[in-house]
Every structure is written in structure tokens, then in C-alpha cells.
Design a protein around this nucleic acid. Sequence first.
DNA 1: TAGATTGTTAATCGATTAACAATC
DNA 2: TAGATTGTTAATCGATTAACAATC
Lengths: 214, 214
Amino acid sequence: MKSALSILPNPVVRRLPRYLTHVRELRRADLAWVSSRGLAEALGLTSSTVRQDLSHLSLAGVSKRGYETRRLEEVLREELDGRKAHRLVIVGAGYLGCALALHGDLAEHRFETCGIFDNDVAVIGTQVGKLRVKPMSLLRGVVQGKGVEIGIIAVPAHAAQEVADRLVLAGIRGIVNLAYVHLRVPRRVAVVDSRILASLQELAYAIKTRHGAT
Amino acid sequence: MKSALSILPNPVVRRLPRYLTHVRELRRADLAWVSSRGLAEALGLTSSTVRQDLSHLSLAGVSKRGYETRRLEEVLREELDGRKAHRLVIVGAGYLGCALALHGDLAEHRFETCGIFDNDVAVIGTQVGKLRVKPMSLLRGVVQGKGVEIGIIAVPAHAAQEVADRLVLAGIRGIVNLAYVHLRVPRRVAVVDSRILASLQELAYAIKTRHGAT
DNA sequence: TAGATTGTTAATCGATTAACAATC
DNA sequence: TAGATTGTTAATCGATTAACAATC
């Protein structure tokens, strides 16, 4: 059992949400314990990998029983969602941006949407859930005023780089990029690409080579 | 230069879309050549990695000049999008499903949307772009009738497993899962998770540990 | 107790990086 | 020509898996 603030290897970080979603299922089914073998089989890993991964968390398994699902969910959420809320803004109020703004899961995981922005006068001012779409000119003020850390780019590919530049200028620390373009940003800003088209391409490749993937 | 049908390591497959999107930028800027070093710097890799990656493709670089951007885009698209179209269905006609259905990029990369489905009578029958939302009862017929290979799950988490089951039953070969749940499917079916919440969590972690990522 | 399961160390595997001869 | 850049081999690094003593 290590300190929760040690730096986890990236492959581990990317597996944590999978553990979390599976463990929630187990809890829903009222299972109080799960073994490394059980997790491994459900997620397509080896039990060794599971034990290695979980050894990074503040959690102790119990011989013969495994890990307590309640505690496991707790530490996974703590590791993934952190202790304080993450503030974010969404840029782009098309279907994709609206889907995000209306998506209750984010708030449930301590991601707080502080604004949604667009440059189209036809949508500026319209209501999306509890938010009203704001013009891009107000982006900087909101980011700095509310201490927003994260920007989600939900605009068409051709506009994404410009949006990224404005987010960087506003002082954002990380970007989730949903557009199918490569963004250039200063090194201090972290970017995670999350693009359905890229996922489709990965999947098509996996199918072509007859080979399950996740 | 190897045959394009050799099996690429997964880390390579996941980098290919990034090369592709960057190379398109270069072409737009009318740059005819790019070196491994140029690509590496733009994408945050080493030039060694770039040369290793590209050596898997049917493409030869030229000493002193690098790779021809036109040809590079061509082989990347061939590798990623394949030669024939991939047929897909979207399940869930909420904002997210509609965003996908209306998203021109898919068709441009040879992903052909053959249907959009929902079980809500309020949306069944409504028009989304060129498609009309169909009831779930017609899923199987469409999948089998049109030879659909891929299903995209764009429904709330609590409904995702059931949708996955129906897609599997219909004979789908791969699933892109946008819901924040872990799906259980038979081994022959490939699943790629593409979840914005997981990307946010990965990003939050990267920010926390002061560390750029992609 | 006997058997199952953890936590951890050591072994293996695979991916990334370095290095350099070949080449334009 | 001299210098830059590829393609590839070898070295390094890191992640996954195997193995097993400790433990409940």
C-alpha cells in the first residue's frame, strides 16, 4: 500500500476507470468482495496485473476474500476524481457540446461545468440546461474569474486550433480535444484526445486483424 | 517497407490518427515534405519512434528530405480507413447520437452510418439528417440486411449493457462504447471505449501530477 | 487445518530510444 | 562534395506476467 499521491504509470491510470465502472456493477449486484482473479476475468486482464495496479492504491486486500468492493470504489473515485471539484468550460454549443453540458455524470464525478461558449450569434444566449451560451469574448473572463482548469473543445475540426489558442491564452491547464485535428499547445498545457473517429479507426483495425481490443 | 497487412502493435495504431491529422495540416500549408524530426517535434515523440512507426507502412522516405506529405496522408488513410467502407449503426438518438449522425467526418473516412435507433417513442420516427430514427425492434434486421459491422453505443450508462447484448445478438463484430460502464461481450466482439468522462479523469490526473499527456 | 488469495520479487516480454551505416 | 536524413540493428527502458512466501 503506497501513498495515494505517488505517480501512477499511465497504463495504470487508463485502466482505473475500467475498474471503477466494473466495481460499480458489482456493488449494484450487492457483491461485497471481489478477487483479483474476478476483476481480471471481467476486464480481460491477468490477475497479476490487477494486483499490481491495485497495490498503487490506499487499499489492502484480504487473503482468501479479495478486495472489499465498497472500499475499492471509494479509493478509485478518490484517485480519479480527486478531492476537490475540477472546473471546466465547454467550447462549442452544437449537439456534442450540449450533450456534455446536459450530461449528469460529469457533476457526479466532481467536474463542474462553469460555462458553455460559441461564436455563432444564432446560439449565443440560448439556454442549455442551467447554462446560457456565452460569446467567446467572455471566455477569458470566466476562466480567470472562476479559476477554471479544463477546457473541452467541441467545435468542428477547422476551428479547433483557434479555440485551443484562446483557451491557452485564458490560462487553462488542460484540454480535452474532441476534434479530429492535432492541437499545438505549449508544453505546460496537457492535452487528452478523445475522438470518436479515432476510436472507430482503432476498432476497424482490430476487426480487420481479428482481434478483440479495449 | 513492409506489407500493409502486417499486424501493427497497438501503440502504433493509436498514434496513426495523430500522424494523419498533423499531416493534413501540413498539406493545407502546402508543405510537400516532412522529416521524422519534424513530425516528432509536432507530436511530442522522438524521431526514432516516428521512423519505426512509419517503417510499418508502404512508404519510403527519402534521405535529406523526409517523407512526402501527399503519399504519407494516402497510406495513413488507407491503413486507418481500409479499402472498403465500414458500415455502422448508432444506438441512442439523444444529443450524442445525433451529433454523430450529423458528423460529416465519418463518411469522409469511409464509415457509413446505416441507421440510428432509439427505444423512446417520442423520438422514433423523427428525422436526423438523412436518417429517420428507428425502433430497437428493427435493429437486427438492419444489421443483418445491410451487413453492418460496427455499433456505436450512445445511450445512458444504465441502458448500455442491454444495448450491447442486442448488438451482439444482431451479429455485430465491434462496438464503440461511449457510455461510462464496462461492457461484457463475447470474445469475438471487439470493444473500444471512448468516454469523455474517462478522458477528463485522465486529464485531471495529468494536471495533478504536473505532466503533459496525450 | 487446508486451501485460496494477497503482496511482492524476479523473469519475461514488448516498446522506445540510441546509434550508425547507407544514401541522396 | 558535405551534410542531413532514412532504415534498421542493438541497447535500454518500462510494463506485464509468473512465481511463491505470507496470511487469513
